[in-house]
Design a protein around this nucleic acid. Structure first.
Lengths: 115, 115
DNA sequence: CCTACATTTCGACAGTTGACGAAATGACTG
DNA sequence: CAGTCATTTCGTCAACTGTCGAAATGTAGG
């Protein structure tokens, strides 16, 4: 069995990446906003985002100097769609996730980027 | 977010463990039978089984000198149940998985154990 | 084209993982 | 209780992972 077949599980096997996926399930976010909520370095967040993108779980699109990341809602892959559905309905009982989602609602890229 | 919350994804992030889960979805198996199909060492298979057990995906029960491993169908945890459902309906298009499942049907512990 | 700023890539480093064989454990059987 | 055989645990090793800061890339606006 190819390693690629479990890419989605690999992507979700890090707590910070599940946090990111939960966040982009609320709304589109740029790297800065994710970095602000997670409290990790730029490069680390960028890496996590690229792993999630590679697994097919999120999409990105450029908007000027920003890159917006959003959940890949219409994925072809059955495993990807089921995994997103699974994450969507789970983890809301987690204190860290709840705090993240609260902060996502308040966070404003104009204020927190460039810090 | 606690690392434990992603234990299920970690467990499924290795192809050999997905193979094992697919196999025990067919029927209860002992370590020998799994080892025979996967072609890995005893200790490696034992480790994989314990990771799957730790994640709540499989159960084991002693039967004489054998330990039987089976899927944990009535798990309390929502993530575990969804993940099992996901794996159950996926990966059947994979050549390695198909070969594994064929071998599981034929394998006989009386013949292959103690080799 | 120079500057500012968002993002990605690079190089380094500690910690984790998957693999093995060997030794230990546990359970039936003579 | 000694031997056999299924399984687990232990020690080791190479490969992979998550993290960082620094350097590189890309884009908008003066």
């Amino acid at each position: 069995m190819k390693n690629d077949r479990v890419k989605v599980f690999k992507a979700l096997s890090d707590p910070n990446r599940v946090r990111i996926l939960k966040m982009v399930l609320v709304r589109e976010l740029c790297l800065c906003e994710v970095r602000d909520v997670l409290g990790l370095s730029n490069s680390t967040v960028s890496k996590h985002l690229s792993i999630l993108r590679d697994a097919g779980l999120i999409l990105d699109s450029k908007d000027g100097k920003w890159v917006n990341f959003r959940v890949h809602d219409q994925a072809d892959d059955e495993v990807v769609r089921s995994a997103i559905a699974l994450v969507r309905k789970s983890f809301d009982d987690d204190a860290v996730i709840r705090e993240d989602l609260k902060r996502v609602k308040r966070v404003d890229r104009a204020k927190i980027c460039g810090v």
